[in-house]
Design a protein around this nucleic acid. Sequence first.
DNA 1: AACCGTTCCAACCGCAAACGG
DNA 2: CCCGTTTGCGGTTGGAACGGT
Length: 239
Amino acid sequence: MDYVKKGAWSPEEDQKLIDYIMKYGVWNWSHMPKFAGLSRTGKSCRLRWINYLKPDLKKGPFSMEEVEFVIRMYQSLGNKWSAIAKELPGRTDNEIKNFYHTHLKKHLGTKVEVKPKSRKKAKQIEMSIQKKPLITTCPNIQGPDDQSLDFTNSSSSSYITFDENYDFLEISYQDNDVTSIVNQVHDDNIVILESNPDSSTSSSSSVDLHINDFMDVSVHSSNVDFWLDLYLAADNLKI
DNA sequence: AACCGTTCCAACCGCAAACGG
DNA sequence: CCCGTTTGCGGTTGGAACGGT
């Protein structure tokens, strides 16, 4: 049998693979296809089973908890997708990798420079960040009342404030007090912060993170191209 | 309706690691 | 230890679906 099928799996092929594995289990991926009546490579069968057909897979969009977990794991492990997947039951390495590339990648690139006032403070911040790092993300997010939180054309300062646990407190922007909106974003939610990647052409798009004496953290930028978005955990969140 | 650019993910590929004779 | 085979991993991509004009 020389012909090897490639591309999308048909429902019939899926069923053959499921039936075979349910009956005989996985014993040898490379030999199994011909016994299962499949014109596929073992590699293709393995991938199809592991990433799609296995019964204990969780289907559907990532929950907020899963998103947060993936972000934190990525920030501590990097692109160790299988290691991350092991800690996230029901999600495969491929799924997490796809999720990262489609939803997170473009938002995680910006480094925020921390300029603590003292060495002690620096250590505190370092530990705090390890525990609960600043996270990033999505442009053009809709606020709770469908208010679009668009900071793209900022020509003034923006502040975002966290408490000593790095929990989000408030945000102020120009003359507009958006605290009322933000207050609806609850503690469990992730606040995302980044400079606009599209503004990379501009000469000085730095963002400074200032630690004040109260151990609050505020982010300040007077750069025209700086923008902030909030990544809301509300049910209407689209990611 | 037709076209076109973008988004997204299933599935591919190459390579590395693990296995086993 | 060696070497062929199998399994596992991470980067990449083809094309379907979607959204805008």
